[in-house]
């Protein structure tokens, strides 16, 4: 139990996926312009990332490792993630059209979100047990959402600010992300597994 709580704390704050590990930067920069889209993307990521960790962990432990097929990890994982995203998209369209309207456009983007693939690979590399892996998936995705939502809040205010001409656009976004990352650096070393 203590270890699970430690995993949650570490991957939300100490080792934040976006700000300390540089995973999922593309959506972090791409969809953080508006709070609404940031929240939509966060929901989609939390859902898919948790599912992806769960499925890839099972596949890795019960298929790839027993048959010594670890060299197929990259191909298997990316295919699992791609088909999972497709499955979620189809299921959502049938079950909840309103939710689909909200999340629909983000789902295809998630396939190439390196945070998802990163979570699947890290869960294997850190040799987590099943429960730990699932908790890890949830914590990492909450960490991602936290960074994304904070960033969206800052960027909405940045629209009003007067920015030097050269730094307009993505440059100021990256510098803002740097300062945000600096704030999160305050958590570093607070807890280790």
């Amino acid at each position: 139990m203590e270890r699970l709580l430690a995993i949650i704390f570490i991957y939300i704050l100490v080792d934040n996926f976006v700000l300390q590990r540089f995973l999922g930067i593309c959506p972090f920069i791409g969809v953080s312009r508006k709070m609404e889209t940031a929240i939509g993307m966060s929901m989609a990521v939390i859902f898919v990332m948790t599912m992806a960790t769960l499925v890839t962990w099972i596949l890795n432990t019960f298929v790839l490792v027993p048959y010594e097929l670890e060299y197929l990890q990259i191909v298997t994982f990316i295919l699992v993630i791609a088909s999972l995203v497709q499955l979620v998209e189809t299921a959502l369209r049938k079950i909840s059209p309103t939710l689909y309207q909200g999340l629909g456009i983000f789902l295809p983007l998630i396939t190439t979100n390196c945070a998802i693939m990163g979570v699947a690979l890290l869960a294997v590399r850190e040799e987590f047990t099943f429960v730990e892996a699932v908790v890890f998936g949830i914590a990492a995705s909450i960490g991602f959402s936290l960074a994304l939502v904070i960033m969206a809040g800052i960027r909405e205010r940045l629209e009003m600010a007067k920015i030097p001409e050269a730094l307009q656009g993505s440059a100021i976004t990256l510098i803002t992300a740097g300062i945000l990352s600096l704030a999160f650096l305050g958590f570093s070393g607070m807890l280790t597994l």
């Binding site: 440059a171 990256l174 740097g178």
Partner: peptide, 15 residues
Amino acid sequence: QPPGAFIALGLLLGI
């Protein structure tokens, strides 16, 4: 450190 990566890339983009 990680924050430096963001800041350095942001400044380079500006340049």
